[in-house]
Design a protein around this nucleic acid. Structure first.
Length: 865
RNA sequence: GCGGGUGUGGCGGAACUGGUAGACGCGCUGGAUUCAAAAUCCAGUUCCCUUACGGGAGUGUGGGUUCGAUUCCCUCCACCCGCACCA
C-alpha cells in the first residue's frame, strides 16, 4: 500500500521530454501508413494562452493521439496567425513596434504550450507575419490578378473624421469612432476584391458533399451565399423639365409576381442617382449624410430605424404606363445587393409594409391564400399592418390572375423579357471579398501604381515586397502611406516614377491557405510543393470555434478553389471534417459597489456565501459568461497547470460538457479531475505487475471474468465515443469502468490477472485524454516502449453478449416495474411475465386489457381501460 | 433587423433510429478512519405526499401527434454565436 500522491510535477515534464526526444509526434509522410491531418485553428499571438485555446488544442490532441494509435501517420502542426490589428493598437498605445510585440508574444506563447503536453509537430511551425510566409501569398495574389480572379473597384469604408483614418467595424461603437467618439462617415476608396462570387454556385453546391461538417455550419454557409432567383427590371423615371437624370431606374426583385402591388421605389443612399439628386437638394444631401453615419456594417444598417426621403421623382410601372409610384431614398436599401434599388410592395413584404404605414403609401393586395375570399382577405390586409408573405394566388394582377406565386413569377419574367425591360436573374447575397486594408501590420499588396501604366504587378524577381521596419505610430493612419521613401519606386513597365500600393491584405488572406503551407513549411521557392499538398490535403479533421462558421471557413473554401484554378493544387475543398467547439465561460463577480472582481479575489464565507477575499465584503455572483478581461472572469491556464497539472486540466475540460457546447470553468470541477488522477494512480500501485497472462474466462470466478467483459465493453464504448467527439461520454465510460475495477474482490480466483488486464486497458483507453499519467501507468505496469506508440485495443464482440435483459413494464405508458427475461424470450413470455407483476395487477384492477405492446429487449406496455 | 444554435435535479451533463429520464461527475447530508484535519472509504441525494409500502408531478412555455415524446410537429419565452475591416 502506498499513500504517495501522484507527482505530476515530476511525471509530466519527464514524458514530454521523452516524446520530444523520440520524435514521437513528428509525421513521417513516407506513405507507409494512411495519412491523417489534424488541424486546430491557429492562434493569434495575443501574448497569453487562454482557456479557449487550451480547450481547442486539447480537443485536437485527443484526435491526433487517437488516430495515431489507430495506425495513421498523423500530421498535427502549429503556427501563428500573426498579422492583425491588435499589434498596431499595442504600437499606438505603448510605442512598441508591432513586429517586436508580435514576435515576443509568439515566444511567450510557445513557452506556455510546452506544459500542456500536446502531440504537436513543432518542426513545421509557421508564422504568417514573416516574409518567408507572406511572400508566397503575394505571388498567389498576382496569379489571381492574371487569372481574372482579383480586380479593383470603389467601395465604402468607415472613416473617422477626427483621426483621419479608416476604422474597422469593431472600432465603430454606436456609430462613433472608438477613440475619437465622433460620428463616423462613409468614404469611397479604390480597393482590391477577389471574385468569390465566380464560385458562388460551386461553393453552394459543394456544401452537399461536406458530410463531416456540422449541419448548422452548412446551413449558415448556404444562407450566407443566399442564392435567389428573381428579376432585374427597369422603371422609367419621369424627370422634371430641364433635368439631366437617367431615364430609367433598374431594380432587383425576388417577387416579380407582386409588381401590381407596388407602391413606391426606393434606392440606396449610396446609389449614384441619390448622389446626383443631392447636388441640387440640400435636404436630401443631409439625409444621405445622416444615413452614412451608421457605418458600413449590415447589422447597424438593419437595426436602424427604417427611414426614407421622397426624392420627388416618379417612376412608371413597366407593365402599365398609367401606374406611377414615388421614388424614395431609403436607409435600408443596400447598395451591395442587387442593383441598389428596389420596388416596394407593402402588402407582401413586412419591411415595405412598415415603410408604407410610416409614409402613408398605399397597400395593394395582389396575392391571396387559395381558399380565402379574395375581396375580404384584401380588405383586411390593406387595412392592417401585417404583410402576407405566404403562398397563394395572384389577384388584381392582369395577366397573372389566378396563378400560383411561382407561376406568376415565371409569367412576369417572361413578359419583362419580351418587353426588353429587364430579365430573370440569379442573385446571390454573397459579395466579392474586399481584401484591401489601409494598415501597416499585414502583407503588402504587391502592386505599383503608375500614372501612365496604371496598376502594375510587382515582377516576380522583385518579390517579396517586405514591410519596412522604420515606421512611426505617433499619429493615427497608415504608417506605410506616410513613410518617406518606401513607396517611391520606378514603374516596372515604363520606368517612370511610380508609387507602391500602401494597402495590405485582410488577415483572412493568411488563414486561407496556411493549412497548405503546413504540408511543406520550409519551402522557400514555393508556397508549397504540389505533391506535398496533394499528399496531406484535405485536412481530415479541422477544429475551431463556431464564430468562424461563415467568414474564415468560406474564404478558405474559395481560396482553395482559386489555387486549384491557378494550378497550385488538385483539390477544391480544404477541410474534409469540421468540428466546432463551444466557448469556455466562468461565473462573474461584482463588489457591492458594482466593480468586477476576478475569481481569485473571491472566496467562500463560513456560511457558504461568496465574499471578497481581501476585505470580507459580500460579492454578487453573476451567471457564467465568456471569459473576458473586461469582466475579469478569466482563469490563467498556466496557473491551473502549475497547481493540478496538464492531465487534470485536460480531463476536466473534456469531461465537463460536450465539446460543441459552451462550458463553465469551476474550481470544484478541476479538483474532481485531480482526485480522479490520484485514484487512478493508487489503482496502478495496488495492481500486481507479475499477475501472469489472462487465463480462460471459464476458469475464473464470475466476478473476475465480469471485469474482463467490462473491459471489452469499455473498449467498445470509449472507441465509439472518441470517434464521434463525445468526449464527455468517453470520460463517463472510463470512470464507470474504473469504479467496476475498484469493486473487484482481489481474493477471487483469477482476480489478479483480470485486474492487471483491466488496469492496462484503462491506461490505453484514457491515453488520448490524459496522456502523461497513462504513460506513467503503462511504464509502471511493465509495458514496452511508449504507450503513445501502442496500437489501440480491440474489443471481442462475443464478450458483449448478455444472457438476460431487463424490460421496463408500463401500464398506459406509465412505468410500473421491470422484469428480467432471457435475451431471446418471445413476446408471449414477456407479456405473461409482465402481466404477473403485482404492481401491474394493481393498476388493472377492474379494468380490461385492450392491448399489450412488446418491443423485444426494450419495453412492455399494457394498455387497459 | 436578418441567419444559426441552445434550454433536462442545487450545478455540469447522460439517454443509440420515439421505448426504464437523471448515466458519469460536482456539490450537499450521514457514517467509518483520525487526537484533529486533509486525503480516503461506505451509504444517501429530482421535487411533493407517506414512518414505510406506495402514489403524484416532472426535460424553458403553451398546445398537438402516439400505446408511449427530452426525442417528431406548431406557438411563445430566455440566453448564446455570426452579420462581410476583430480574429
Amino acid at each position: 500500500m502506498s499513500d504517495a500522491r501522484y507527482n505530476f510535477k515530476e511525471v509530466e515534464p519527464r514524458w514530454q521530454r521523452a516524446w520530444t526526444d523520440k520524435k514521437t509526434f513528428v509525421s513521417s509522410g513516407d506513405g507507409s501508413k494512411p495519412k491523417y491531418f489534424v488541424l486546430e485553428m491557429f492562434p493569434y499571438p495575443s501574448g497569453r494562452l487562454h482557456m479557449g485555446h487550451v480547450r481547442n488544442y486539447t480537443l485536437g490532441d485527443v484526435v491526433a493521439r487517437f488516430r495515431k494509435s489507430q495506425g495513421c501517420d498523423v500530421l498535427h502542426p502549429m503556427g501563428w496567425d500573426s498579422f492583425g490589428l491588435p499589434a498596431e493598437n499595442a504600437a499606438l498605445e505603448r510605442g512598441v513596434h508591432p513586429g517586436t510585440w508580435t514576435r515576443e508574444n509568439i515566444a511567450d506563447m510557445r513557452e506556455q504550450f510546452g506544459p500542456l503536453g500536446l502531440s504537436l509537430d513543432w518542426s513545421r511551425e509557421i508564422s504568417t507575419c514573416e516574409p518567408e510566409y507572406y511572400r508566397h501569398e503575394q505571388k498567389m495574389f498576382l496569379d489571381f490578378v492574371k487569372a481574372g480572379l482579383a480586380y479593383r473597384k470603389e467601395s465604402w469604408v468607415n472613416w473617422d473624421p477626427v483621426e483621419n483614418t479608416v476604422l474597422a467595424n469593431e472600432q465603430v461603437v454606436d456609430g462613433k469612432g472608438w477613440r475619437s467618439g465622433v460620428a463616423v462617415e462613409r468614404r469611397k476608396l479604390n480597393q482590391w476584391f477577389l471574385k468569390i462570387t465566380d464560385y458562388a454556385e460551386d461553393l453552394l453546391a459543394a456544401i452537399e458533399t461536406l458530410d463531416r461538417w456540422p449541419d448548422k455550419v452548412r446551413l449558415m454557409q448556404h444562407n450566407w451565399i443566399g442564392r435567389s432567383e428573381g428579376a432585374r427590371l427597369d422603371w422609367a423615371v419621369l424627370k422634371p423639365e430641364g433635368t439631366e437624370l437617367p431615364d430609367k431606374l433598374e431594380v432587383f426583385t425576388t417577387r416579380p409576381d407582386t409588381l401590381f402591388g407596388a407602391s413606391f421605389c426606393a434606392i440606396s443612399p449610396n446609389h449614384p442617382l441619390a448622389a446626383e439628386l443631392s447636388e441640387s437638394n440640400p435636404a436630401l444631401a443631409d439625409f444621405v449624410t445622416d444615413c452614412n453615419r451608421l457605418g458600413t456594417s449590415e447589422e447597424a444598417i438593419e437595426k436602424a430605424e427604417k427611414k426614407g426621403f421622397d426624392t420627388g421623382l416618379t417612376a412608371q410601372h413597366p407593365f402599365d404606363s398609367d401606374f406611377e409610384v414615388p421614388v424614395y431614398v431609403a436607409n435600408f436599401v443596400l447598395m451591395d445587393y442587387g442593383t441598389g434599388a428596389i420596388f416596394g410592395c407593402p402588402a407582401h413584404d413586412q419591411r415595405d409594409m412598415d415603410f408604407a404605414r410610416k409614409y402613408n403609401l398605399p397597400v395593394i393586395c395582389v396575392v391571396a391564400p387559395k381558399d380565402a375570399d379574395p375581396v375580404a382577405f384584401a380588405t383586411e390586409l390593406e387595412a392592417g399592418t401585417e404583410a402576407f408573405t405566404g403562398d397563394g394566388v395572384a389577384v388584381k394582377s392582369e395577366f397573372m390572375n389566378g396563378m400560383t406565386v411561382d407561376d406568376a413569377k415565371r409569367a412576369a419574367i417572361k413578359k419583362i423579357e419580351t418587353a426588353k425591360s429587364g430579365e430573370g436573374v440569379v442573385q446571390y447575397r454573397l459579395r466579392d471579398w474586399g481584401v484591401s486594408r489601409q494598415r501597416y501590420w499585414g502583407c503588402p499588396v504587391p502592386i505599383i501604381h503608375c500614372d501612365a501604366c496604371g496598376a502594375v504587378p510587382v515582377p516576380d524577381s522583385d518579390l517579396p515586397v517586405t514591410l519596412p521596419d522604420d515606421v512611426t505610430f505617433d499619429q493615427p493612419g497608415n504608417p506605410l502611406a506616410r513613410h518617406p521613401t518606401w513607396k517611391l519606386v520606378s514603374c516596372p513597365s515604363c520606368g517612370k516614377d511610380a508609387e507602391r500600393e500602401t494597402d495590405t491584405f485582410d488577415t483572412f488572406f493568411e488563414s486561407s491557405w496556411y493549412f497548405a503551407r503546413f504540408c511543406d513549411p520550409k519551402n522557400d521557392t514555393l508556397g508549397f510543393d504540389k505533391a506535398e499538398a496533394n499528399k496531406w490535403l484535405p485536412v481530415d479533421q479541422y477544429i475551431g470555434g463556431v464564430e468562424h462558421a461563415v467568414l474564415h471557413l468560406l474564404y478558405a473554401r474559395f481560396f482553395t478553389r482559386a489555387l486549384q484554378t491557378c494550378g497550385y493544387l488538385d483539390i477544391a475543398e480544404p477541410f474534409d471534417g469540421l468540428f466546432t467547439q463551444g466557448m469556455v465561460g466562468h461565473e462573474t463577480y461584482k463588489n457591492s459597489d458594482g466593480a468586477w472582481l476576478s475569481p481569485d479575489q473571491v472566496t467562500q464565507s463560513e456560511s457558504g456565501d461568496a465574499i471578497n477575499s481581501e476585505d470580507g465584503t459580500p460579492v454578487v455572483v453573476g451567471r457564467s459568461e465568456k471569459m473576458s478581461k473586461s469582466k475579469k472572469n478569466t482563469v490563467d491556464p498556466a496557473h491551473i497547470i502549475g497547481t493540478y497539472g496538464a492531465d487534470a486540466a485536460r480531463l476536466f475540460m473534456l469531461s465537463d460538457s460536450p465539446p460543441e457546447r459552451d462550458m463553465e470553468w469551476t474550481d470544484s470541477g478541476i479538483e474532481g479531475a485531480w482526485r480522479y488522477l490520484n485514484r487512478l494512480w493508487r489503482m496502478v500501485v495496488e495492481t500486481p505487475t507479475d499477475a501472469g497472462s489472462l487465463p480462460a474466462l471459464d476458469t475464473m470466478d464470475v466476478a473476475a471474468a465480469g471485469i474482463v467483459k467490462a473491459a471489452h465493453k469499455a473498449i467498445a464504448h470509449v472507441t465509439e465515443a472518441l470517434e464521434t467527439f463525445r468526449y464527455n461520454a468517453a470520460v463517463a465510460h472510463i470512470r464507470e469502468f474504473t469504479n467496476a475495477i475498484g469493486e473487484l474482490n482481489p481474493d477471487l480466483v483469477g482476480a489478479a490477472p483480470a485486474r492487471r488486464f483491466a488496469v492496462e486497458t484503462l491506461a490505453r483507453l484514457a491515453n488520448p485524454l490524459i496522456p502523461h499519467i497513462t504513460e506513467e501507468m503503462w511504464a509502471t505496469l511493465g509495458g514496452n516502449g511508449l504507450l503513445a506508440d501502442q496500437a489501440w485495443p480491440k474489443h471481442d464482440p462475443a464478450l458483449l453478449v448478455e444472457d438476460s435483459v431487463t424490460l421496463a413494464v408500463q401500464v398506459n405508458g406509465k412505468m410500473r416495474g421491470t422484469i428480467e427475461v432471457a435475451a431471446e424470450a418471445d413476446k408471449e413470455t414477456c407479456e405473461a411475465t409482465a402481466l404477473a407483476l403485482p404492481t401491474v395487477q394493481a393498476q388493472m384492477d377492474g379494468k380490461q386489457v385492450r392491448k399489450v405492446i412488446v418491443i423485444p429487449g426494450k419495453i412492455v406496455n399494457v394498455v387497459v381501460g
